Simulated assay, not measured.
Amino acid sequence: MSKKAVVLDYGFGNVRSAERALARVGAEASITDDFDKAMDADGLLIPGVGAFAACMRGLQEVRGDVIIRHRLASGRPVMGICVGMQILFERGIEHGVETPGLGVWPGAVEPLEAPVIPHMGWNVVDAAADSRLFVGADADTRYYFVHSHAVRDRSRESAGLRNPTTRVSRTTHGEPFVAAVENGALWATQFHPEKSGDAGAQLLTNWIETL
């Protein structure tokens, strides 16, 4: 029996692309902004593109913040992608303006310092040694990124992610930053698995197998 994976539609993110990617790996995929459907699904995927502040407003309008907290409180799987990952941190800083995030993880989402911004294109990831997300992926596998902000690895706050229950994978574009986090029922990637071809499909398969 296939697992039900719902893509939360809060006005930000490539929901159709995410739905197709989940269906490709065998999930019973759908898109919804309905509170009950998002709560009842085996897995909830939070996409996200654009500005941190706008995504937070859109998420709150559909009570996505409540959905995420309730699901995590009961150990039900959630996966965030791109800004859908960023909003899980304490705050986002864009153009000098600070916006509170969900605060599930410590740290700030800040502008990357790199010769070329945005970071757009394919990049390798230094996967955590005990990662479940990257099972089956070679070290030289590349994933598709498109972003200008990230949780910079040099931030003292990001040290709060370094504990035995959290797996943090990293990459570098100008400077090191957090590329993925796995913490119990909550997984997230800064890159786009749904745009990363077979490599992304492997990661989504790994997530679906946990549902």
Rank of each mutant, 00 (worst) to 15 (best):
Asp9Gly: 12
Tyr10Ala: 08
Gly11Asn: 04
Arg16Gln: 14
Ala18Ser: 11
Arg20Trp: 09
Leu22Glu: 09
Ala29Ile: 00
Thr32Glu: 09
Thr32Phe: 01
Leu44Cys: 01
Ile46Met: 14
Val49Trp: 02
Gly50Phe: 13
Ala54Asp: 15
Cys55Glu: 12
Arg57Cys: 00
Gly58Leu: 11
Gln60His: 13
Val62Leu: 11
Arg63Ile: 03
Val66Phe: 02
Arg71Cys: 10
Val78Thr: 02
Val83Arg: 03
Glu90Arg: 12
Gly96Met: 06
Gly96Lys: 03
Val97Ala: 11
Trp105Pro: 03
Val109Met: 12
Glu113Pro: 00
Ala114Asn: 10
Ala114Ser: 15
Met120Arg: 13
Ala127Glu: 06
Ala128Ile: 06
Ser131Cys: 02
Ala137Arg: 15
Ser148Pro: 09
Ser148Glu: 08
Ser148Lys: 07
Arg152Val: 15
Asp153Val: 11
Ser155Pro: 00
Asn163Ile: 12
Thr165Val: 11
Thr165Lys: 08
Val168Trp: 06
Arg170Phe: 02
Arg170Lys: 10
Thr172Tyr: 13
His173Met: 08
Val178Arg: 02
Gly184Ala: 11
Ala185Val: 15
Thr189Lys: 05
Glu194Ile: 10
Glu194Gly: 12
Lys195Gln: 08
Ala199Leu: 08
Gly200Glu: 08
Ala201Leu: 09
Leu203Arg: 01
Leu204Gln: 10
Thr205Gly: 14
Ile208Ser: 09
